[in-house]
Design a binder for these strands. Structure first.
Ligand SMILES: [Zn+2]
Ligand SMILES: [Zn+2]
Ligand SMILES: [Zn+2]
Ligand SMILES: [Zn+2]
Ligand SMILES: [Zn+2]
Ligand SMILES: [Zn+2]
Length: 768
DNA sequence: GAGTTTGAAACT
DNA sequence: CAGTTTCAAACTC
């Protein structure tokens, strides 16, 4: 759904909202997710990797990308989605323009309906044909789900691209071309915008856009091709992109909220916003998310340079997005540029699985985020194979380490994308490009994934753990759940268990992928939102300039604390670094991030529903309390957060936190992942806020997949086996209505508001 | 590290 | 949907 509202909302709040992440989040939101779930799943499988899958679902979020895709695809019909989004801003024109541009770009020959093919051809003559074919598909996919990712990625992408260009030749090829195209002063910037805005693009930059688009298309096309060949280079590029997108680089130091949130929604948006600022072309970046903002920025003042950079970056980013969208296929892109191998476009199959993991995406992923390859279940979903190759980790200045992974496989991509957030792939990209021959795939993948998800800390921890047995980094400690239930943090986060885990009889491992996926399905069937990020950030205030209060973020389901007064990590809200909200049923709430009473829905005013008198405690705490304060306090209390400790928790909150913490400035713009999945978010958060208690657990961004139920049997079959416990709920994947508690409406709220739209989100959520 | 507390997840 | 049980983390000592 297009949810024009978002657009609107976004515009106001702006950056976050605009950011793809936001979109994702929104999409992720329970409600939407559900709907989208099916779609998303497919998409996920196809194009994204797990975590991202989450993104995918969020139709809305993906605005840019999706638009992109769609446009490309349906050039003709810009369709409501685009229009609506853009329209709000007044970009309506954009849609047209965009479409037009797209056409132009894509179709070298103006006439071609299949712009994509044209574009492909242009970029990649040889492979173009095949690619072209695929592209359409991808585009479609992309449109639906990927969008959100794209944006973030783009942002990061740009950075990454640059880096990459420097380092890796292959990447360069891709990137550069795109960059060059983008490079056009205005164009570049716009390019990013394009998806969203494009206003400028239309005319002036049309060419650029076209280029961009074409590139993107090419990328997409390439991606689609699962072909292994491209893998190395392609992978690298992809990875790089992903990385770039993924903001996450975890700053270990920063405490983050855990919520997997990457929670997607929130995180994404938040990240996006943050990045904007930080990034060279913050404005632009932001703009990407929203057309309005972008426009404004442009108008206001984007430095030419900055713009250029941004543009370029964006271009890359988009590519990334595309790639992501393309999901598994992404690799191709790279090839295109280089080898042009035609890959097989097959796309497909992964979808079913992807969805599963995805959730974990975000990341969605989240988150988020996971299948085979890396540690994410999504990966498994996405990837059929496990060819990944990871690459390397680097430490970021922020303290987080970057991990770059390159995977041949799509799954990896997904994973990577997710992971990447943490690190930047850029540097890696170069390395990656070289590609380390496959290292142990799984492990590498997992590492990367974990890193992405949990953050660099996680990796470090792991090292420590390995070296010295440091347990601080441990993850789950499941004894009876076989790590196949939500009790298990790893499983809940959409990641496979890894060394640091102390679980017994663990089935949450790549070798038991089938079981894991089947179980996931069952759980999702029961509760579509089960793997969705728990924390959603509202961006509302953040919007244009107000980063400060991420306060808007909140736990989707709310807590039900009776004895902890929401002052300890027993409380999911607190753990997630968010204040309690209307959705909480807590008693005696004293949540340092904001009490339920004090909670004011983002756009709206407080709504005290009279819930409890607790408000007395701090009605306004949320409001008044700045996150920073909270963080400080929290930090004091929970120094760990900062560190790796709770890898899981990546919170969606992160976004908010980030803002708040950074309060103004994002820790590392470049890094931030705007787009990627929840993970990114979490990462960001971490970076930004070290404060938070512990971040939320890993969450996933993904949406719930739907239910295809492919494997239910599997699980069922396994009754004896671990899975047995799981019941298959709804038979199909339908999404059942959200379980929980609070009524659906809450869910809805959560879903909606999530990150992105401040208002939107808030309104629905809160009000409801 | 063992033991307790806690609240979500799972189950009925 | 409510009530209960199960579970593993968070916390305490
Ligand atoms: Zn476990
Ligand atoms: Zn585990
Ligand atoms: Zn395990
Ligand atoms: Zn609570
Ligand atoms: Zn709460
Ligand atoms: Zn509370």
């Amino acid at each position: 759904m297009d949810t024009p509202e978002r657009n609107r909302i976004c515009t106001p709040k702006s950056k976050f909202e605009d950011s793809p992440v936001f979109n994702y989040l929104n999409s992720l939101s329970p409600i939407k997710s559900v709907r989208s779930a099916n779609i998303s799943q497919t998409f996920n499988s196809l194009s994204f990797s797990s975590p991202p899958s989450v993104f995918t679902s969020p139709h809305v979020s993906s605005q840019k990308e999706s638009r992109f895709l769609r446009r490309n695809f349906f050039s003709d019909s810009a369709k409501s989605g685009l229009a609506s989004e853009n329209g709000n801003d007044g970009n309506t024109r954009v849609t047209d323009a965009e479409t037009a541009e797209i056409f132009n770009c894509s179709a070298d020959p103006p006439q071609n309906p299949d712009s994509r093919s044209g574009t492909k051809e242009v970029h990649l003559p040889n492979e173009s044909l095949e690619l072209a074919i695929e592209l359409p598909r991808k585009l479609k996919y992309g449109c639906e789900s990927p969008e959100s990712n794209p944006v973030p990625r783009h942002r990061y992408g740009t950075d990454s691209v640059r880096e990459i260009t420097g380092t890796s030749s292959s990447l360069r090829q891709f990137v550069q071309p795109s960059l060059e195209r983008c490079s056009c002063p205005k164009n570049g910037v716009e390019v990013q915008e394009i998806s969203q805005l494009e206003q400028k693009n239309d005319e002036e930059e049309g060419s650029d856009w076209e280029n961009m688009i074409s590139d993107a298309a090419g990328l997409l096309v390439l991606d689609p091709s699962n072909d292994a060949e491209a893998t190395k280079e392609q992978l690298n590029p992809n990875i790089s992109f992903l990385n770039s997108q993924a903001p996450d680089l975890p700053q270990e130091g920063l405490p983050k909220p855990q919520s997997g949130c990457l929670e997607n929604d929130n995180l994404g948006t938040a990240e996006g916003t943050v990045q904007k600022n930080t990034n060279c072309t913050p404005q632009k970046l932001q703009s990407t998310s929203r057309s309005k903002k972008q426009v404004k920025f442009h108008n206001e003042k984007v430095d030419d340079k900055a713009e250029k950079d941004c543009k370029q970056q964006r271009g890359t980013r988009r590519r990334c997005l595309l790639f992501e969208m393309g999901g598994g296929q992404k690799r191709r892109l790279v090839d295109d540029s280089k080898s042009g191998s035609s890959s097989s476009p097959s796309d497909g199959k992964v979808t079913s699985e992807d969805r599963q993991l995805v959730p974990f995406k975000a990341g969605n992923n989240s988150s988020p985020c996971m299948v085979p390859g890396i540690g994410l279940h999504l990966n498994a979903l996405a990837v059929s194979g496990k060819d990944n190759r990871v690459v390397k980790q680097e430490n970021l200045p922020s303290g987080k380490s970057l991990i770059s992974m390159s995977s041949h496989i799509t799954s990896l991509h997904t994973v990577e994308s997710e992971l990447q957030p943490l690190n930047k792939t850029f540097s890696l990209s170069s390395l990656e490009r070289d590609i380390v021959p496959a290292v142990s795939e799984d492990q590498v993948m997992q590492d990367a994934y974990q890193a992405s998800v949990f953050g660099v800390n996680f990796i470090k921890c792991r090292r420590r753990y390995e070296n010295g047995g440091d347990e601080s980094c441990k993850r789950c400690n499941c004894k009876k759940s076989k790590c196949l239930k939500l009790y298990c943090e790893c499983f809940a986060a959409g990641v496979y268990c890894v060394e640091p885990c102390s679980c017994l009889d663990c089935f949450n491992k790549p070798i038991h992928e089938d079981t894991v996926l089947a179980t996931r399905k069952q759980i999702e069937s029961r509760n579509p939102l089960a793997f969705a990020p728990k924390v959603i950030s509202h961006v509302a205030e953040i919007g244009e300039e107000t980063y400060k209060t991420p306060a808007s973020a909140r736990h989707k389901k709310g807590c039900n604390c009776k004895k902890s007064s929401c002052l300890k990590k027993y409380c999911e809200c607190f753990q997630g670094g968010v204040g309690c909200s209307i959705n909480c049923r807590c008693e005696g709430c004293k949540n340092a991030f904001g009490t339920k009473d004090g909670y004011v829905p983002s756009g709206e005013e407080i709504e005290p529903e009279g819930e409890e008198s607790e408000s007395s405690e701090k009605n306004n705490t949320r409001k008044s309390l700045q996150i920073s304060e909270v963080h400080n306090d929290i930090e004091e209390q929970y120094p760990d957060h900062v560190t790796p400790i709770t890898p899981f928790q990546i919170c969606r909150m992160s976004v908010q936190l980030e803002f708040s913490s950074s309060s103004g400035k994002p820790p590392r713009p470049s890094i931030f992942p705007v787009g990627s999945s929840p993970r990114l978010l979490s990462n960001h958060i971490q970076q930004i806020s070290g404060v938070l208690p512990t971040p939320l657990k890993l969450e996933k961004q993904f949406q719930i997949a739907a239910p295809e139920d492919e494997t239910p049997e599997f699980l069922k079959g396994r009754n004896s086996s671990p899975i047995s416990g799981v019941k298959t709920a709804s038979p199909n994947g339908k999404r059942v209505s959200p379980p929980h508690g609070k009524s659906t409406r809450k869910l809805v709220l959560q879903s909606i508001p999530s990150f992105p739209s401040l208002t939107f989100h808030d309104q629905t959520d809160d009000h409801q």
